[in-house]
Design a protein around this nucleic acid. Structure first.
Lengths: 106, 106
DNA sequence: GTGCATAATGCGTACAGAGACATAACCCTT
DNA sequence: AAGGGTTATGTCTCTGTACGCATTATGCAC
């Protein structure tokens, strides 16, 4: 049984991934480094919002950034998020197949 | 690049795990089936709260239940949550070790 | 230095969801 | 059928946070 502190850490981490906006940013960045302007263009969010979300992801270590002159280039080099999503995706598939079979049996 | 719908599904799933109360319930249930009274005893939450959280977990397929007379026995037979937590735990360890080494170098 | 880009923060609004209390639905026993 | 124990739901409050606007901070060119 994990300690309350560890449970809190887990939940905080999962909370980062519980927001479609952040997942979207992560997915974009996993395809390669991007600057903030491109992320604004790609997602349609406001600059301030993107900056905040990137800040959260950076503090969690899921994203890093480097300066390119006046621009900031963000990159997500960690495969963890990809792995987690793959596991969840497999799960979602199983669920849908189960539901499909139940409908067929009925 | 995942579709918005898929991103939404991912985030909804991770949102389930983003609450310490639900993670706590899952951890208790992964050690074996329990009835609601025991979960109340173990967590200190109100009966209504536990019932709602179990309902969410059940709709997501992370938990199932069976009647035992008037009582409901809940069980979490899915190893997915355990796998996800293991991945995250490995990640947390790495982060701490990095921070430790940086402190040592300074 | 001044001016001009971009990124980060202060602040306000809005909404989702946690959590508890009260109530209703459910099942068992008699 | 009636009553008692267990679980689910209606409703409320409150906190957290997403999100945008305005402002500030930061770095570059001149």
């Amino acid at each position: 049984m994990p300690s309350p502190q560890l449970l809190e850490e887990y939940s905080q981490f999962f909370r980062l991934l519980s927001e479609p906006a952040r997942l979207q940013l992560l997915c974009h960045l996993q395809r390669g480094p991007m600057d903030v302007a491109s992320l604004i263009e790609a997602t349609g969010f406001s600059q301030s919002h993107i900056s905040r979300q990137l800040g959260q992801l950076q503090r969690a270590g899921l994203v890093s950034c480097e300066r390119d002159g006046v621009r900031m280039i963000y990159l997500a080099d960690d495969p963890l998020v990809q792995d987690l999503c793959t596991l969840v995706q497999t799960r979602l598939k199983q669920r849908l197949e189960q539901q499909l079979q139940q409908l067929r049996a009925a």
